[in-house]
Simulated assay, not measured.
Amino acid sequence: MEKSIIDRLRSEGCIFAEEETQLLISEASSVEDLMKMVEIRASGLPLEYVLGFTMFYGQRIIVERGVFIPRQRTVFLVKHTEALTRIGDIVIDLCCGSGAVGAVIATDVNKISLHSVDIDPVAVKCASRNIADIGGHVYKGDLYNALPCSLRGRVNIIVANVPYVPTDAIKLLPQEARLYEPKVALDGGKDGLDLQRKVAEGAPRWLAPGGHLLVETSKRQAAKTFEIFTNAGLMTKIARDEELDATVVIGTNSGKG
């Protein structure tokens, strides 16, 4: 049976058919359930949606259909955020999607006050499931507008994996992303940086003195993201991991917001 599943998935273009087969077998509750999952996967639905979860930085993250699937490159963003986060910090996770970034940080650092935000109600529901056991809060709304005013000027960390794909480049994305993931989680506007501008402009008003803003961006966009951060009054630096093809821009609030 295992070989037939591998062959079925491979025939539909699944590059990692062996690994996917093992995951499907381990998660299926019965042979009937397994065959159903195999057919759904073979139809093109992303594996994470078929399984209902993904492994992200060692943590099992619930992924519901219609929610942006966490990318492994985003581990680089998490690592840099955790390096700056201290016990007791107030952490905001903007455009949180499944809530993966905030959930991992809250689990690893402990005793932070986590506030996650997304404009998509499907994402808000999914994020709520992922951070329910760690005492975080999830809000539906447009970036900072969704947050309690009481947090203004007190936030230690803002982490934001906002959409940064230029609108015209969405058609070049892999089929699984184009067909199944929400456009609102991918489309960053004409140059891909519309949301980054909004996040950076608002950050000084929400960050405490010495607080940090971290965003994921592309290698090609990094210089422009750096400029956006500095124009917002943040002390800025760029971190890059070639192996993961991951770029993070980090801004620090030097004064009062």
Rank of each mutant, 00 (worst) to 15 (best):
R8S: 13
G210V: 12
I90E: 10
N145F: 09
V165M: 05
E243N: 10
L84F: 11
E242G: 10
K171H: 14
V249T: 04
S113T: 07
S11H: 06
Y164P: 02
L207P: 07
C96Q: 08
A103L: 13
M1W: 05
E243V: 12
K256G: 14
L151P: 07
A42P: 13
V63I: 14
K3H: 11
S254C: 12
D120W: 00
F229V: 07
Y49P: 04
A200G: 07
L47P: 06
G257M: 15
R73L: 14
G211P: 09
L234E: 07
P70V: 09
E181Y: 10
L114D: 06
S218W: 07
F16G: 03
E39K: 13
V117S: 10
A239K: 15
K36M: 09
S128H: 00
K224F: 05
R60D: 09
K3I: 09
P148M: 08
S4Q: 01
N130W: 00
R60P: 02
I119P: 01
D194F: 15
V38F: 01
L47F: 06
S26W: 12
A100C: 00
P46M: 14
F68D: 04
G255T: 11
D187C: 10
D245A: 14
V184Y: 07
P148R: 04
L244D: 09
E242H: 06
E27A: 08
L24E: 02
G188V: 10
N145Q: 14
V249M: 06
S150Q: 07
I158L: 15
S116I: 01
C96T: 06
S254K: 04
I131M: 03
F76K: 15
Q22V: 04
W206Y: 11
S26D: 05
R73Q: 09
N156Y: 03
G136W: 00
V124Q: 00
M55R: 09
I69H: 05
F226L: 14
S26N: 01
L77T: 08
K256I: 11
L51W: 12
V109S: 13
E181C: 10
R178F: 02
L34Q: 01
S11E: 11
L84C: 02
R154T: 13
S218Q: 06
E2W: 09
E19M: 12
Y139S: 00
I157K: 05
V63R: 00
T167K: 02
E216M: 13
E48N: 07
Q22F: 13
S26F: 09
I112Q: 11
E48L: 07
V117G: 11
D194Y: 14
A132S: 06
H80Y: 05
L179P: 07
G210Q: 03
I69M: 07
V165D: 13
